[in-house]
Write a protein that binds this DNA or RNA. Sequence first.
DNA 1: CCCTGGCACTCTCACCGACGGAGTGCCAGA
DNA 2: TCTGGCACTCCGTCGGTGAGAGTGCCAGGG
Lengths: 338, 338
Amino acid sequence: MLSERRLEVLRAIVQDYVGTEEPVGSKALTERHNLQVSPATVRNDMAVLEDEGYIAQPHTSAGRIPTDKGYRLFVDKLAGVKPLSSPERRAIQNFLEAAVDLDDVVGRTVRLLAQLTRQVAVVQYPSLTRSTVRHVELLSLAPARLMLVLITDTGRVEQRLIDCPGPISDSSLADLRARLNSRVVGQRFTEVPSLVQDLPESFEGDDRGTVSTVLATLLETLVEETEERLIIGGTSNLTRFGHDFPLTIRPVLEALEEQVVLLKLLGEAKDPGMTVRIGHENAHEGLSSTSVVSVGYGSGDEAVAKLGVVGPTRMDYPGTMGAVRAVARYVGQILAES
Amino acid sequence: MLSERRLEVLRAIVQDYVGTEEPVGSKALTERHNLQVSPATVRNDMAVLEDEGYIAQPHTSAGRIPTDKGYRLFVDKLAGVKPLSSPERRAIQNFLEAAVDLDDVVGRTVRLLAQLTRQVAVVQYPSLTRSTVRHVELLSLAPARLMLVLITDTGRVEQRLIDCPGPISDSSLADLRARLNSRVVGQRFTEVPSLVQDLPESFEGDDRGTVSTVLATLLETLVEETEERLIIGGTSNLTRFGHDFPLTIRPVLEALEEQVVLLKLLGEAKDPGMTVRIGHENAHEGLSSTSVVSVGYGSGDEAVAKLGVVGPTRMDYPGTMGAVRAVARYVGQILAES
DNA sequence: CCCTGGCACTCTCACCGACGGAGTGCCAGA
DNA sequence: TCTGGCACTCCGTCGGTGAGAGTGCCAGGG
């Protein structure tokens, strides 16, 4: 176990390095933070911290920089979450409240988060797995062609074209629509399959095949759309990374374009509260020099999706975590209201 | 007017510079292209081209690089559009045909374009101005709360929540839905306002106010959604730009995040065919060292939206133009089929 | 009149060595 | 256990140099 002072030294190193982006030496440390000891003592402490793997030197006789392990300790034990100022909070609220629909909410959220943290923001669309059905609509486009529209309680709308095995009468269609809605409205997606299973049986002849097709499409939509979509913003903030650009920024941009990667990234954070994954803790190689701060948000008490930011491991963790948490809360409120 | 050979020299300079990214000198030119003249002659030609503003030297006694004006001449007079190989064409078609819905088509298109050109791709969603209404749906969510769903012939779906001045009966709602659809289905958006104008008059009492509200929301949706949405992809290709990164890439990323900027960019290209805007021809400052190649595409004979790529002025114009044109064609086909 | 070879000039870039500075590790002493 | 001192290491910067590439100009020849 590290002594109190050594932890203090680590904290000081992280803070300074995050601020200056330059390796920090013993002398600078004693000057900028009022540790009540001499540089030599700090040097000894730093030697210990280095042995333990919390900090490293880019080369001999340079200052120290924190390692992933060092940041991890910092985040877990040394740093709190810095709450936003109340003007900031009000600004967030006002900005989000101006949104007109779900797309707008998500779009505004991602911009807001990118601006607050000056990093890359990622927002996942509210998940359908925990969503409930608000309405199912069936429209006849052509004799044997239907459009299925699914509306969720989060305000999301999905549509699918259906080619039917045969024509269906308007009255049968209305019948199906009514029965379908009476069974599934207000129900969770996961419940739907068992609730509609026996519906085809109550239809006759050709209609039965059509009904089966419609139900199959509906279930397919529920499953497919459970795979979330997400949007990102603030990629230009990547240019603030370092001066060793091309090598750093390239793989990150590539990873960000792969929705699959990002979804896995957010998905891996099991904790419904805030999760911070630092450097190599991210499975994806291109993101090994970035940290991901993510948190679940939801319209009610349950988290229905995640949002977060991606930035250099050298980031202001307390501030970033504060911003992420605050934005998640307000988005949740907005979603609950609508 | 420039002589034939001088044009040939300009063409050679553009081609070499695009390939090597380095200023090209007189000797290299005579070697790599079989101009049947000596380096000295080429030097004289280059001096003339420089006087005319088609090429420039980064510094005295360095090779020449094309100016925006030089690229413009190259594109207008010296270069054709390089058609894709037939394996490429088949790959495009197969890739696009696998799309399941409009979102997927657009998503695949942007990825395809980015990959083919190795540049940043921009695809605008099919426009609503020329679209027609396929269906309007009204759902009752709560006594005085409706949801309006608009489905277009391009497969796009828009929804809006409506808070009504008072409750409306199910029968009135069904009536409104039926009348509304009978009037607007198959009509162009621009026609809709005049077609529904007198609808409120045929309703009584409280319902009249509700109908007015619904219509207002519908018209608003038509107008709002005429402002197009678009998606971009392949931003990681920006890292291939040059080695003078941060300064170059930053403003481009920023511009790309501003949908407004991009929409204006695409919108400015009046020509329904292919448009190439080179360097400073782009009004936006951040894009002054990039070129934009764009083209309209559509499901039928009319162009309903634009797509294109953004890359360094030093790009392979014939190849890029070929890819952009080919992709636009195939997307058009896919849209026409669905 | 246009093209060519030759020549002197310019400018950049890569390489080298020296130097100063920042930071370290270690040690002896309090 | 902390402190001050000291020698050492390593990086980044700076100035100088030389090679290379490219140019502009000029005189001569078709």
